[in-house]
Amino acid sequence: MNPLFARLFDDAAIFPPGDLPVPDAVKAYRERQLSPLEPLLGPFVCSLARLDELVAAAGPAAAPGRPLPVSLVVPGPDTSAAPAASTAIDVLAVEGPELIGPGGTLTAYREVGRGEITATRVAALRDAGLRLKIRTGGVRADAFPTEKDLAEAICRATAGGVPFKLTAGLHDPIRHRDPLTGFEHHGFLNVLVATAHAVQGGGVDEVAAALADQDGHRVAAAITTIDERLARDVRRQFVSFGTCSISEPVDGLLQLGLLPEDTL
C-alpha cells in the first residue's frame, strides 16, 4: 500500500453528517481493524462528552486485549480529562479549539480558524508543543476555505514546522463541487500533492494550483510520482484528516486505481 495513505483516515463516524450511534461506529471500526483496510485507519475520534458511551461500546468483552485507539475532542484548554489507557480504549491524541499546551505523552492539536493561521500563530503553536487542526468544511458554504486560504495555511504550517490535520468536507479524493449543495469541497489527494509542493519549497500559488485541480487522473498521476522519501516528509506534515465516512474515500481511491482491488 502507498505510504501516503497509511493511517490517513481518522474515523469521525459519530459526528455530523454521519451521526452513527457509538456502538455501531465502534463495531464498524473493529471490523475494519480485521480487514485489509486496517493500515489506512487513524484513531477513532470521540468528543469528551461521549467518552462514557465509547468506553462502554469498546469494552474488553468486544475485543479482548485490543484497546480502541482514540483521538479525544476536548472543549477546554488542558488535557487533564483525557483518561489513561485501559483495556477498552487508548487515547493517543487530543484536539480542540482551546488547547494551550502540550498533551504530555499525547499528541495535541489546536483548532485554529483559517483567518488566524499566521506565521506568528504557527510559531506560537510550535513553541507550545501543539499541532494545528484546520477545518475544511461544514454545513455552510463559508465553512469551506478557498484554495488560496488553504494553501496559505499549508505553507505557513510547513514553513513553521508544525504538523497539521484537517477535518470536515474531505470524503472525496478530488476537488469538486457537490451537485446537491453547490459547496466546493477540497480533495484529500489534492491536499497530499499540495503538501508535497509545500515541503519542497513551493509558494502559495503553486500549492493553491494543486488544490484547485479537478482532473482526477492528473491528480492520481501526481500521487504516483511522490517517492517514498517525499511521502514521509508529506505525511510528517499532513498527518491525517477526520472523516465521518471511511468507505467513501476508500471507494474513491479504488476507482482511481490507487489501492489494490482486494482492499475491500
Rank of each mutant, 00 (worst) to 15 (best):
L72Y: 10
G96R: 03
C244W: 02
C244R: 03
E206S: 15
I100N: 06
L150V: 08
V139N: 07
G96L: 05
K148M: 11
L4Q: 07
P60M: 11
G242N: 14
A119Y: 06
L256F: 08
I100T: 15
L125T: 05
F44V: 02
D233F: 00
V239T: 12
L41A: 09
L40T: 03
G242M: 12
A13C: 13
D11A: 09
V91E: 13
V45D: 10
T243W: 03
F164T: 05
R110E: 07
V91R: 12
D262P: 06
E248F: 04
S86P: 04
H186C: 02
G187D: 03
P16A: 13
N190R: 06
V55A: 15
H186K: 02
A220G: 07
L254R: 08
S35C: 10
G138V: 06
E98I: 00
A28H: 01
A82W: 01
D19N: 14
A6F: 11
P75Q: 00
L264Q: 11
Y29T: 11
P97A: 15
A231N: 07
E147Y: 02
F144E: 03
A210W: 05
G216F: 03
T225Q: 12
G201L: 14
C155I: 13
Q200W: 00
P145N: 10
G101L: 10
V234L: 05
P43D: 14
G216N: 03
V199R: 05
R235T: 13
L41M: 15
D205G: 07
G42L: 11
P249K: 01
L130H: 01
G129N: 08
G202T: 12
E53D: 14
S247T: 11
E98S: 12
I117W: 02
A81N: 11
E111K: 04
T195I: 07
S245A: 15
H197D: 14
L264M: 08
L180C: 04
R131H: 15
L253R: 09
L99T: 06
G101V: 00
P43T: 07
G257Q: 12
I117V: 06
P43M: 03
L99I: 11
P60Y: 07
D262F: 01
A108V: 14
E261H: 03
A93V: 01
I117E: 04
K148Q: 15
G59L: 12
G203Y: 11
Q200C: 11
G187L: 00
S80N: 04
L150E: 03
V22G: 06
A56F: 08
S240G: 13
E111T: 09
G115W: 01
T243I: 08
